[in-house]
Design a protein around this nucleic acid. Structure first.
Lengths: 347, 347
DNA sequence: ATGAAAGCGCTAACAA
DNA sequence: TTGTTAGCGCTTTCAT
């Protein structure tokens, strides 16, 4: 079992000073080709690799990014997590995960813990009380960016899709499709994503001269969404909405299941359904859900860029609110306005 | 912005030595009640928290567990990741994520990186070449456990569901259901999970006097599974299997979609489909997939327990292969043998 | 029970 | 370009 190899051992084998070894492994340090060769040879021979923790102690940079995530039920998050982690890895950073959800009682504890690791930055994804936590980080001098949550509070960088515009697009699409009794099933009201989607949706509906026909809340949870769907659709035919915008795909699947399999209604003939996120199952033929795409790649790229900006140039980096436009992906869960055609399935 | 507070500052404020402060924050050290009170008071006042990295340097324990994961497409992994992270957090450990998949070209690089962080242990989940990597860890003196992968190689602790037994159960269920032309759609052959499921399935089929009617490979990927489904089912009715066991749920959804929506066949009247994993969408009414449940909670508990055993008592901990039995969850995607009833949906 | 002192493995001035 | 030196913040003997 290969024991720990230190830079000192490498130095001795190579016949140079310990600092010479350090320099070889420090990008941008000045070492002669000859020394470098000797050191690399010795290092390889011994299987030496610099100790990240020791380096972090003295340099103050751990190359660790804390990622706080509430839950992974919504399949948008596994995707985002994977991309985030990959993007960070490419920059030589790594992700320390903190589940802020269930068991982990106190979110404050989680924050303490995360700061104990001297992380270089923090990404908050789908976390309740994001703003409080974000402030704590700021105060501790740790750069933060909120992923898929925005906050009124200034001074915090946030990256989201353009939820307001997305909500508008859905309303316009549904109105163009000839719907006149349009319902909305909301997510958790504490989430800015939910509020913005609803606001955009209502605004565009209003401009088209329509009011929301029905409103209910699914809290972003499957079971709550199911219950909401029953309240909204298990009614006399005349009271039934002819279309529903569900605040995210995760809930939309549950809503579709209730509509089709419990109530025996047809989609989209009896009811049009539109979701938000475009997670993979939305493209599965069993759902074929028309939905707003959240462009995870772009959101991740912006998040990482903003975070590094704050890390590298804390003085000049200013907080910004990035909202990335997402297209409406037209499939078959909602009636098509004239002239529209659905996208090919499973792209 | 609160600057870093050191134990020395706390010591000075409390009027004690720096070591006293250290002892207060070291479980099981000997400090008088009086000293402890003074220190805690000063610590709270200053907002002091021990620096995990510095502690790791001297103690040699980072309280970081490296989690290497190949991909998160299969929705079993987000669930496992969440539970794993929670379980570890409860023990005061945290998870450093390494995506071993796509972009990250060389898996060896990933391993180097992970060891650079002086992790106390490594969990490998769904990683190609697991055994090589695991050996590398062992050699570096870092405890490893393979999650949801097993290896012939001795000396490595692995935790899986009992894939062989699971495969058997499916075969027995399908045979009891009166099927006589039973197909199998395999996952990636490099995965022990795939091999064991297939082996168990074939064995029980053989004991019932049946041969596999058709065999194809879906590689655990949606698109490959779809293609396999077409090859297997888009044939003359007599050549068509009357049942198929798909190596995991993720592929089973794709297979069901092809069978129902491309080929217009009915499930389970024309074809019975059984999967493996029991991920959440399996319980969604649009699929209602009969499948073997992987008990994530148990698997996680065993994984964490085994890992800590190796960390805490490296001398006496011996490698073991844990295989956790998983029940067949009977839903409606496969014809019921006499006397069987489907479980309630969405449990 | 407590303090002093010696590092953990490394980077970053500072000289040379 | 290179070696020497001084720590980073903490735990852990070793005395007291």
């Amino acid at each position: 079992m290969a024991e720990k190899v230190t830079s000192l051992q490498v130095a001795q084998l190579a016949g140079v000073s310990q600092s010479a070894v350090s320099r070889v492994f420090t990008p941008g340090a000045s070492v002669s080709k000859k020394t470098e060769d000797k050191v690399r040879k010795a290092a390889t021979q011994l299987g030496y690799r610099p100790n990240v923790l020791a380096r972090a102690m003295v340099s103050g940079k751990s190359r660790i990014i804390g990622l706080v995530v509430g839950y992974l039920d919504n399949y948008f998050y596994p995707e985002a997590l994977e991309k985030l982690s990959n993007a960070l890895q490419e920059q030589g950073y790594h992700v320390l995960i903190f589940m802020a959800s269930r068991s982990a009682g106190n979110i404050d504890d989680v924050m303490e813990e995360i700061l104990d690791y001297q992380v270089d930055g923090v990404i908050l994804a789908s976390v309740p009380m994001s703003s409080d936590i974000a402030m704590r980080c700021q105060q501790a001098g740790v750069p933060v960016v909120l992923f898929n949550r925005s906050q009124d509070m200034d001074g915090i960088t946030t990256v989201t899709s353009d939820n307001y515009a997305g909500g508008r697009k859905v309303a316009e699409f549904l109105v163009a499709g000839g719907h006149r009794q349009i319902a909305y099933i909301a997510g958790w009201q504490g989430a800015s994503t939910q509020r913005d989607r609803e606001a955009g949706f209502r605004a565009a509906l209003g401009e088209a001269g329509q009011d929301l026909f029905r409103h209910d809340v699914g809290e972003f949870h499957t079971e709550d969404a199911r219950a909401a769907a029953r309240r909204v659709f298990d009614v006399a035919p005349d009271d039934r909405p002819d279309a529903v915008f569900v605040a995210n795909d995760h809930m939309a699947f549950a809503v579709m299941d209730v509509i089709r399999f419990e109530l025996g209604l047809r989609i989209p003939e009896d009811v049009s359904v539109v979701g938000y996120d475009d997670v993979p199952p939305a493209g599965w033929p069993a759902y074929n859900l028309t939905t707003i795409r959240q462009r995870a790649n772009l959101m991740v790229a912006e998040t990482v860029a903003a975070l590094f900006e704050h890390i590298d140039t804390p003085a000049t980096a200013k907080p910004r609110k990035v909202a990335i436009d997402g297209p409406l992906v037209v499939r078959t869960s909602a009636r098509l306005p004239k002239g529209w055609t659905p996208q090919r399935t499973n792209t």
